[in-house]
Nucleic acid binder design. Structure first.
Lengths: 221, 221
DNA sequence: CCTACCGATCGGTAGG
DNA sequence: CCTACCGATCGGTAGG
């Protein structure tokens, strides 16, 4: 939880008030998140957020400096890295293939509750020219290093020569490729893509990073 | 050019006026596109669009029913499929690898002038819940079939068993993976990613779809 | 009668 | 944390 530096007028605050304030702030962020991913940034008004969070419009400004500040908090609080980084660090397996499949499963399950996590990133890119994304990238540099270290611990004998960071980047790219092409190709009227579509992406990726003629353990293709 | 069905009241129109009207419509779409990709949908006002197109606000409504109608026209006119589909159909090569590399180059060059083509798709997804994307997907079904036919003409001996449509989908996913992870990982303050980053994605993809132990002709990894 | 626009203004809402 | 407002601007439309 952040320091409540947004409360300029409160010099002294009781424990009870502090927790009440934190709770309100959390309510606002959740309400704002739901509205932003559904309606976009400019499409969502401060009045809607206030109403959804069960406070008056003016009350928002006790917790946030303005609309962009609300979005920034939502973005930092709901960014998928909260799920993705622990999943990457916790992934286990004896071979690279097992590691990748385990990592995919962990991430897939962690993001399953939030099918619209991409919307948050898209809003940030189009409405704020990725300024918060860049801010986050700077802050997460040590985390990147930690992940790279973790990758180096794996037995990479069977891996083609690919820099660890590029390995992580292409791995995450897998999900973007899958999700975005699903949106592009999908036609709600027609029968859905089969459920093992993601498997094609995974297997192509695994064949792509592994050496030569080893057959994958759980190949579907 | 589309039929000007938006002018319900026009029963007869002279050639000169028709072309003047078409030109104005084109100017509006270009102006709106530039503003939308820079500022988002709700972030762009009809007044800004009119101003940028050098006409009065009221004049917009002689060409479009409203703001959403303007965006729809921009989306259909500037969607990357205009560049991507011809590039895919025109790709040449004697091996799958040559085909893929040629296709990548054609698409890369065609989209080079429009680094923000993703923004248009992102706005559509977050602001309109992909309704225009779905509309487009339905209209482009025959085009999909044409591309799949084209893929079948290629010598696919060296290819792992992957359905042609999945081949096309993962191929396009390549660009999304590259572009989006570039945004996520990039830090303007730090030295840029090297210029051959895309090559890693391409080579992983090629290794991923091709059989066994064949060495790629132009491998960098 | 038409097309292509204008200046002015409508009812509501924006962030603060 | 609320009520009561502000300057400005929103998308869209009026008559001419």
């Amino acid at each position: 939880m952040n320091v409540r530096s947004f409360c300029h007028y409160e010099k002294i605050m009781s424990e009870a008030n502090f927790h009440r304030g934190e709770h309100t702030r959390t309510k606002i962020i959740r309400a704002a998140h739901d509205l932003f991913v559904k309606q976009g940034y400019h499409g969502t008004s401060m009045r809607q957020i206030a109403s959804q969070a069960d406070i008056a419009l003016g009350g928002l400004y006790n917790h946030f400096e303005g609309k962009e500040d609300v979005f920034r908090a939502v973005f930092l609080e709901y960014h998928p890295y909260h799920e993705v980084v622990p999943a990457l660090l916790a992934a286990k397996g004896e071979t690279v293939e097992q590691f990748v499949r385990n990592g995919v499963n962990r991430i897939y399950e962690a993001l399953d509750d939030r099918p619209d996590f991409l919307n948050l990133m898209f809003i940030e890119i189009v409405e704020f020219n990725s300024v918060h994304t860049n801010e986050l990238a700077r802050e997460l540099t040590p985390v990147q290093l930690k992940i790279v270290e973790r990758v180096r611990e794996i037995n990479l004998d069977k891996l083609r020569p690919i820099p660890p960071l590029m390995l992580v980047r292409t791995f995450l790219g897998l999900f973007f490729a899958y999700k975005l092409t699903e949106i592009i190709f999908a036609q709600p009227a027609l029968p859905e893509f089969s459920e093992n579509d993601l498997d094609y992406f995974i297997n192509i990726y695994l064949h792509g990073i592994l050496k030569g003629n080893d057959k994958l353990q759980m190949d579907v293709g």
